[in-house]
């Protein structure tokens, strides 16, 4: 239990990912799937940022001329990894939305069941 509180961030990460995953798989509305996907991705980003966090550290920008102290500066590595992940996320989201629009042009619906019914005809 202590561990659970100590790692509250991770619990939130897991909850966010569960929410995102559930809506990617179970939601029938395409836009909702896209939003779920984005939530899933932000959950992972939160995870990486959390593991790279340092208690009481400053932002990773050096000031002045004194030699940098490793303990006092936040970890830049996880941050740049997640910059990449964010950009990949928005690219994927844009692509998903474009596809959704195209599908809407065909079927006048965002509902997966309705689209499948339409296709079967």
């Amino acid at each position: 239990m202590e561990n659970l509180i100590a790692n509250f961030n991770y619990v939130i990460v897991v909850i966010l990912m569960m929410i995102g995953l559930w809506s990617m798989l179970a939601q029938k509305n395409l836009i909702k799937k896209c939003i779920g996907m984005a939530i899933f991705q932000t959950g992972i980003i939160l995870f990486f940022i959390s593991i790279g966090a340092k208690r009481g550290a400053k932002v990773p920008i050096l000031t002045g001329d004194e030699a940098p102290v490793v303990e006092q500066l936040a970890n830049p590595l996880t941050q740049i990894l997640m910059l990449t992940a964010i950009v990949v996320g928005v690219a994927t989201l844009g692509m998903a939305l474009a596809l959704a629009q195209k599908i809407y042009r065909q079927h006048a619906s965002f509902d997966e069941d309705e689209i499948l019914e339409n296709q079967r005809k």
Binding site: F40, Q41, I44, M95, A96, A100, K102, I103
Partner: peptide, 27 residues
């Protein structure tokens, strides 16, 4: 389009799970 959309959802899920796994190794 619908096939591509489903693939996109599945593919993104796969990539995200992979990334998360990388995170666990990274930790």
């Amino acid at each position: 389009y619908m096939a591509a959309f489903n693939y996109l959802i599945m593919g993104t899920m796969g990539a995200c799970l992979y990334l998360l796994g990388v995170g666990f190794i990274f930790v």
